[in-house]
Design a protein around this nucleic acid. Sequence first.
DNA 1: TTGTAGGCGTTATCAT
DNA 2: ATGATAACGCCTACAA
Lengths: 357, 357
Amino acid sequence: MNQSPAPDIAHVCSAATPGVRSPSIKDIARLANVSHSTVSRALQNSTLVNPETATRIRQIARQSGYRVSAIARGLATNKTHTIGVVVTTIADPFVAEVVSGIEDAANDRGYSVFLAESNADPQREKNVVQSFAEQRVDGILVTSSRVGALYLPSLSELIAPVVLINNHHPTAFAHSVMIENVEASRVATSHLIGLGHTRIAYLGDQFGYQSDTERFAGYRRALEQAGLPFLPELVVHGDGKPEGGVSAMRRLLDVVPRPTAVFCYNDMSALGTLLAIRQAGLRVPTDISLVGFDDLFVASYSDPPLTTVRQPMRQMGLLAMESLLKLMSGQKTADTIRVPAELIVRQSTAPLREILP
Amino acid sequence: MNQSPAPDIAHVCSAATPGVRSPSIKDIARLANVSHSTVSRALQNSTLVNPETATRIRQIARQSGYRVSAIARGLATNKTHTIGVVVTTIADPFVAEVVSGIEDAANDRGYSVFLAESNADPQREKNVVQSFAEQRVDGILVTSSRVGALYLPSLSELIAPVVLINNHHPTAFAHSVMIENVEASRVATSHLIGLGHTRIAYLGDQFGYQSDTERFAGYRRALEQAGLPFLPELVVHGDGKPEGGVSAMRRLLDVVPRPTAVFCYNDMSALGTLLAIRQAGLRVPTDISLVGFDDLFVASYSDPPLTTVRQPMRQMGLLAMESLLKLMSGQKTADTIRVPAELIVRQSTAPLREILP
DNA sequence: TTGTAGGCGTTATCAT
DNA sequence: ATGATAACGCCTACAA
C-alpha cells in the first residue's frame, strides 16, 4: 500500500512539507493522457484544444491542486505580471492610502505587487532598485519618495517603466501623478484671507521638496492676488510629521505680532501644530485658524476637526497604476497627470477676531 | 544636429525599451571567455573558482549592468526568497506599522515581500491565496485578517509556512505572534478602577474576533479582582474604526446612569469615542475617562492625549518574520509568541469626580 | 486538434 | 579550477 503522507486527509498540520513539489504541467499531462503542451493550452483557455479535453484537463488540474508557476511562466514569457512599489515608509498614512489604491487596481488587473521601503536611506534605495531589477518587475511605482532623484534614470532605462506619485524630486521625462498643488494651496490660503486674516503663516516641509515648493507658491499667489504683503518671518519648515509641526509652530508662536492663521503643508504637520498651539494655552480657531493638506482620516477626528485640502489618495494610486499599465504595454501616456484637489472646510478656521484698537 | 532631448545623456525618455533583454549569465561568459557555469560560481562567491578570474568576471558583470534573474534562480532552486504578506487593508495604521516592521526585517534577510489586501472580501482572499501560490512564495505572514479562518489549512499545507500576527480567527496549529491581550486589558481596566471608577464601559470590536474576546476577558478579570459588578449594559461593539467608535459611544451615552470611564478596544475606536463625547457636550477626562489600545501615533496627538496600551507593532512584525524564517528553514518554533504590552498613561484618564450626594 | 522540440536564465552534478 | 550537460516548469513555434 501507499505509505506516503496521509492519504486523503491531507490536513495533517505540517507546515508546507519541504521536498514535496507541487504538481507540474507534466503531472497533469500524464494524468490526462495528453502532452504537456495540450495542458498548457487548455489552462490558458486556448481555442486550439478540443473543448472536451480542455474541460477534462481543467478538471484534473483542479482536483490535483495545480497552480501555474508564475516564475516558470515568467521565465518563458519574459513578463512577470509583477510591479514594484517603493515608498519611504508605509507607516505614513498618506502613503498607505495611495498604496491601498494601487494594490486594489493591480489586483484587478492580475498584477502582484512587491512593496519596498526606502526609509529615505540611500543604501536601502539601492537595495530596492537592485531587488526590483532582479525580480524582473514589469513596472515600478514610486510614491512620496526621493528615490527618483538618484535612481530614476537607471530605473526607467534598464529595468522597467516608472510612474511617480507625489514624488519629492521629480525627474525630467518621468511619468507622474501629482495633485494640483499650486491651485489647491491658493484656494486654501484664499479661504483664510476671505475670513479676514492677513497674518497667515506657512508651515512647510523640508526645503527643496517639490510639493512644498508648489504649495508655497500657491500660498504666495493667494497673498499676491489679495494684495497682501508676504512676510518672510511667517514661513517655517517642519518635517512632514507631527513632531516637526510642533517645533515649527513653537517658532511661529514666538513671532510678534503672532500670526492669526497657519496653512500647514500637510495634515500630519497640522496635528503637531494643533498640539503646540494648545500647549501654548491658545485655541483653534478662536486664537489661530488652521488649514491642513491631505484630508487624512485624522483630519475628521481632531479637535477641532481640520479644515484641509482633500487629495483623492486611493484614486491617485489607481491613476498611477493605469498609467503604468499603458507604459508597460508600450503605449504612450501623458507625462504628468494633474489631479484636482478639494478644500474641505471644517471647524479649524474662523473669521478673524475683531481686535479693538 | 540632434533635436531629441539631451543627446548622449542616455536619459532619452523611453521607458524600459521592451525587447531589450537584460544581459544573462551567458553573455557575461562570452565576454569573459569562460563557461556560464564559471560565471555562476564567480557570482556566488564560490571558492571553486580562481580568485583572479572571479574578480575579472565580477568586473565585467558590473560593467554590463548584469543582474541575476531571481525568477530563473527560483526555478532552478525551488526557492524564491519571497514572502507574501496579507492584510485586510494597509490603510489601517496598526497594520501599516506591523508591515513596516516586516518589510524591514525581510529586507535585512534578503527577502522581497509581496503585499496583498483581502479587504475582508472572501473572493479577494481567494485571489490572494491563489496569487501567493502561483508566485511560489517561501512563506506567508498574515496580519489582522480573517484569511486564516478560511484558507489557513490549505495555505500551510500546500503552499508555504504561515505565521499570524494578531489575527482575528487563529486556527489550530497555526504559528502566531500575539499581544498579551488579557493581561494588558486587565492592567488598563485596573488603572481606571484605581482612579475610583466603578461604572466602566467596554467598547469592543466585532463579536467573535479573538483580540476582542481576549481584551474583554481582561476587562472582566479586572472588575472581578476589584470585586466590582459586571454591568452588561456597559458593553458595546464598534468596528475597530473611528466611525464605529462614534456610534457605539452614542449608545453608551444613552445609558443611565452614564459610565464614568470607557475602555476602548483600540485607538481608532477611541478616536471616534472622543468625538462622540465632545459632540455630546461632555469632556474627557473631566466627565468621562478614556483608555485606548495600540498606541498609534494619533494617541499622542489627540486632545487630550490618550492613555492607551502600547503594542510594539514594528517589533511584532519583526518577530513574526523571524519566526517565519525558522519555519522556512525547517526548524520548529513556538506555536504562539506572546508579546507583552505596556500601559501608557496620558491625559485621557483622571480620578472619578466626587459627586455630592 | 495534438505532439515534439527547443528555449527562457539559473543552479547543480558530473567529468575533466 | 573549469566546462559540458542536465534539470527547473512553462510557453511556443513547428510539425503532424
